[in-house]
Each structure stands twice: as structure tokens, then as C-alpha cells.
Design a protein around this nucleic acid. Sequence first.
DNA 1: TTAAGTGCAAAGGTTTTGCGAAACT
DNA 2: AGTTTCGCAAAACCTTTGCACTTAA
Lengths: 152, 152
Amino acid sequence: MLENSEAETRYQALVSKFRAREYRITPQRLAILRLLAESTDHPSAGRIYQELCDRFPTMSLATVYKTLAVLKEMGEVLELSLGEGENRYDGHNAVPHPHLICTRCGKILDSDVVLDQDVIATAAKASGFKILSHRLDLYGVCPECQKAESGE
Amino acid sequence: MLENSEAETRYQALVSKFRAREYRITPQRLAILRLLAESTDHPSAGRIYQELCDRFPTMSLATVYKTLAVLKEMGEVLELSLGEGENRYDGHNAVPHPHLICTRCGKILDSDVVLDQDVIATAAKASGFKILSHRLDLYGVCPECQKAESGE
DNA sequence: TTAAGTGCAAAGGTTTTGCGAAACT
DNA sequence: AGTTTCGCAAAACCTTTGCACTTAA
């Protein structure tokens, strides 16, 4: 695999943040951080576990969840609770951004559209809430599933 | 309680839709529909169950979940999976609209800000997705919890 | 060396399901 | 009367936790 410098940078940043907080750098954690940095498909805890099992025969699901909990607490991973099946995780980019979710195949893509800050400011003013974060999910059918459907 | 015509209208609409689909009209379902039509606080299944237990000593949580499943399938209730604790349900207004979620007390308010359709159209065009629905959650601290915090 | 992390298995909480009894149409 | 629905209990499912063992610092 050629170097993916974006993923590499993200990986190094995550490792640095672990070090800065004096969390211990274990092989398991490094593997999870690397996978999260490289993934753009928003894997679930189970998926992360599966992928790492080959390389780490002793990897456990508990360790995956515990590491994800640390990352959540650090604000370095977005947890997407979809209401069906497992939660999905975005550690590639922890800054809130919209997600495109295919209701047929479960695929999740990042969207680069920008949510108008006016929307948030207006809502904050009208409600008195101090808004700290947000989440925008767009549900629909991905191009592949559209093709599969029309072909049937 | 004075008549709340908005809630009453919504209740009648839900009952009509059950009839139209030839789903049976049972006292349990009527009670759940009424509660959903009247609620603006996005109750969980457990909450709905509790509230109705007094009036229906034999009400069961399974029936609440089964009725919610029917409503979901009909597209008459929004299910909000928050990732912690129970899912919350909005049957008062099933048209997608933003929610303000207090991360301190769990309160959920409807927001009447409108999500710019351009955002959705742009995301659809860029990704090739056929977008059918969306969800915008704004997380923050509600006025009451802000007050409680500053008072401490 | 020692405090933190791992990994197994068990517990926890929410939601779904199977099935006999009840009840809507 | 014939299905659908109810409601109990059990199962399913995802996630968290307790604890003895291991390991990073």
C-alpha cells in the first residue's frame, strides 16, 4: 500500500494525544488508532475487532470498546448511534460533519457540505440553549443500491 | 384539561391511518396514540409504558414497542436513537425537524429552524445519493441546566 | 516496580420474539 | 368465527464491568 499521508498524519496525531494524556501506548491501542485513522467507512466496534483479530489473535472486543471509550472522552472519535445494529465510529475526522447513510446497505459516507452556522445560531437564540455540538444525518439510497434496485 | 385541538387533530389523524390500513383499534393502541399525539417531550418506550400503566393496569412494554414498530413502519413516528439509554419517540410531528438535546438533563425540544434545502440538494448531487429523510440534532445545555450550573 | 491495560466471562440494559390467551372486526 | 393483538417471559443484542493476569513506563 502506498503511503496515505492524510491517514498517517491522523494516526500520528492520535498517538501524540495519547502520549500527552499519559495513556499507555499498547500494541492493541496502536492497531485500533491506525485502523480508525485509515478508515473512511465508519466501522462498528465489531468490525474493528474482526479486522484486527487476524493480526492480533488475542485482541478482544472489550479492548476495542474500552479504547473507543477513551477516544470518545478525548473527543477524538464521533460515535454514530443509528438505532439499528451496532454504533459506528468516525475516528478519521472527529469534527462534526454531515453523514450520508444508505438505508439499504448501511454504508456511511462523509459529506463535505457545510451546515449553515445561521441555522445553529438561530436555534440557539430561539431556545436559549448553549449549543456545543451537532449532528446531521442524511438518509437515502446510495448510487450502488439505486442501480441494484433499477436492475431488478 | 382544556381541549388541545392540535393534539386532538393529530390523534384523530393517527386513528384514521390505523383504520385505513385495517390495523385493529384496541384500547391499548388508542392510549398510546393519544399519548404520542399529546406529548411534546419525546418520551421513551419505558416512559410511555409508565404513564399508561396507571390507566391500563395490564399494559405491557411489549405492546408499547410493538405499537411503536407499527408507527415507524407507517412513517408516523420519528425514532431518536441517542446512543445512551432508551430511544425517544416523536409522534407529535413525524415530519423531520431539528431537535435540541440537553446533554445534562436529557431534555429534548423541537426546534422550528428550517434546514436549508440547498444543503440537502448539494449533498445529494455531490454524492449521487437519493436522499429521503434527514435528522439534525443540536446538542447543548438547556437554559434550566445553565442556570443550575451557574448557581452552583 | 507498579499502576494501567488486557481479555475473558459475566452482568446490564434495551428491544425483540414466541406463544397461549384475549379481543377486535 | 377467524385473525389480529395482547402480555408475559424468554431470548437476542450491544455494550459495559469485574477481576486476575500481563505489560508499558
